[in-house]
Amino acid sequence: MFDWRWDFVWEILPRLIWATGNTLIAALLGYGIAMVLGLVFALAQRTPSRILTMVVRELVEFIRSTPLVLQIFFIFYVGPQFGIRLSPWVSGMAAIGLHYAAYLSEVYRGGIEAVPRGQWEAATALNLSTARTYFRVIIPQALPTALAGMGNYLVGIFKDTPMLSVIGVAELMHTANAIGSESYRFLEPFTLVGVIFLAISLPTAWLIRVFERRVRRSLGMN
């Protein structure tokens, strides 16, 4: 094929694989932040306080409808303006964590709202405490509904990590760019990045589907 050089591929592959490690770390760290913060956003919208609900609702909408890459720039550059210097990693994780927290909060909310009202009523009739109702009755039933969305966003956050390259996080895309500008060869590095992404995201998506079915079955909901 057009000037495709295998020797160059073997030369750059170790660097790209090392960078893939950074990409995975970034994705998992960001997802961890998003899972916790997302739960905070979701539960904040279920408190009796109307103002808190409204403010969090609007914040979630705002985060969801503005570009992640712009949020990354915003967090990275606004700190220094006020004398706070954040490293690329810290601001990148904050931005991606916050962005996906907004998505996950919607997934959690959807899951919780899909639990029939009768389940809340039965819990009340049995005098279960609010915490017990959430953790033992509602969340186990919300989980199977939420898992599909949670899995999609795990793959999603992984695919969004290349945006971290814009502030200099040394993940896969950043490394491919560096290789390209050093060697003036873009065909191999950019193609390999695409292949690596496919090689990780397709099996992950498949594993998530298997896991989802398992959880459903283990909770006795076929």
């Binding site: 389940q119 009523e121 009739a125």
Partner: peptide, 10 residues
């Protein structure tokens, strides 16, 4: 209840 409202995962 009319629709039992048993906890399906228990």
């Amino acid at each position: 209840f009319q629709h039992f409202n048993l906890f399906p995962h228990m």
